[in-house]
Every structure is written in structure tokens, then in C-alpha cells.
Amino acid sequence: MIPNKMNINFEQILEENKHKIYRICKIYAVSPIEPQDLFQEVVFQIWKSLGSFKGTASISTWIYKITLNVCYRSKLKYEKKEEKTISFESIHIVPVEKTSQNDQNDKHQALYDCIATLNESDQALIILYLDEVRYKEIALITGLTENHVAVKMKRIRKLLFNCITAKIA
């Protein structure tokens, strides 16, 4: 059982980061795994690892590391199935009723489709870039050097821009 002090932080962490976690989960969820399943697993891993958070990096960097690692682990199907069978009923993810923003929805879809065309490691980098994470922080999250991130990002951004321009134009 984690102490009360942690509960407060945990709630705050979830509230502040829930949307960015879910965005990443949506990219990596491949049927039969739903984004909700990945999101729940990320929440569980954050809670489990909270005690070992040393504060050497920002909480945001730490959350990105956990989210990406959980998403990739699920892709590698490394976790035993039985460990994933509990679903948290306390987490509610409800689609917001779509209004007349069809144009916006098309753009979202186009962006997701374009990200899906990138290779797996490029996806991780572009997600962080789109979330406006600085290269220095991306380097900490991925374990690459800042220079390496910059070189890669130049190429990936070009790929993404070409794809999205073709789709939306």
C-alpha cells in the first residue's frame, strides 16, 4: 500500500498527463489491444514505480519513459497474458460526442495514418516532437544523444510533412 502523500501526487500526475499518455496509447494500440488497455497498464506501472522515482529528471520525462516502454512491451507481446486480465473499472474513457468538426477529425485521422507509416523507432521520436518535448529531454527518454535525436528528427519531420501534406491537400 502506498502512503497518502503519494496518493495526492499520483492523482495530480494522472490529471496532468492523462491526455498525453492516451495519445501515445492510441498510436501503439494494435488490435486486439485497445488504447484503453494500454492506458490502464501505463497507469498501473506509474503507480507501481512511483516509489522509485528519484526526481533526477522531470516527472514529465519519467512519464514518457514509462508510457513508451509499456507500449513497446505490449507490442513485443512479452508480458504474460494472465497479467493483463484485470481491467480497472475506476478509469472511465468515454468518446466525446462529435459535433460538426469533421474537418478536424479528418486531420486527426490523417496524422495518425501518417505516423503509422513511420518505422517503430521513428514513431516514438515524432510523438515526443509533436508533444513539444525538447531534444535534450527526448535524448533522456530514448537513451540517444541530443545530436543523434536532432539528425533523426530532421529526416522524420520531412517524412511526416510530406505525408500529411499529400493527405490533407
Binding site: N7, F10, E11, L14, K18, H19, K20, Y22, R23, K26, F39, S90, I91, H92, I93, V94, P95, V96, K98, Q104, N105, K107, H108, L111, Y112, L130, D131
Partner: peptide, 15 residues
């Protein structure tokens, strides 16, 4: 576009 994409769902918790 990326950041707004997660506004398609409402996420809430019962802590």
C-alpha cells in the same frame, strides 16, 4: 492537431 486528438475522449478517474 496532435494535441487536440486526445480531446476526442473524456478521461476521468475514481481515485
Amino acid at each position: 492537431i496532435w494535441k487536440n486528438s486526445s480531446q476526442e475522449e473524456k478521461i476521468s478517474f475514481d481515485l
